[in-house]
Amino acid sequence: MNLPANIEVHPKAYFYGARDLARFRSRAPVALKLGRGSSIDGTCLDVGPNGRIVIGEFTYVSASCIVCDTTIEIGDNVLIAWNAVLIDNYGTHGDRRAAPIKIATGAWIGFEACILPGVTVGEGAVVSARSVVTKDVPPYSVVFGNPARIVKKLTPPA
């Protein structure tokens, strides 16, 4: 598969699915960066002209959907399950929200969860399946529901 020149895939990373790029229109010098050991597997990448996606090492993005007009930063060792939605902008002229999303190292996004504009998911946090995350998730916490609420605290690694 021929990737656009502004996509940087590490030799030990994996990118699958040409269909992913049907809505990839970014003109940023580095529009998508995929680090060592990371995979993107059949994810819809709807990236606007100035959109940038940076993905760290050993991160797994399964068949999900990333809608990006600003910047979406995904750290190392992040797990993103199937049909998760990361959307950093929505709305029309008068009522538009666009703000970068950050998923920190070791976070885990459950299947069909939705991360809305401006949200930061903290280190090691868990977003449970089908949650809708409207505000920041503190590090090492578990959130669940629509809208997502904190249900549990985890022990940070020693």
């Binding site: 030990k12 990371s38 995979s39 991160t59 797994y60 797990l79 985890l154 022990t155 690694p157």
Partner: peptide, 18 residues
């Protein structure tokens, strides 16, 4: 995947391409 953050970091590496 394990819920414990320390275990999950290792599991992510095990799931990776490297």
């Amino acid at each position: 995947h394990p819920v414990d953050p320390a275990e999950r970091l290792k599991d992510a590496v095990a799931c990776s391409t490297d």
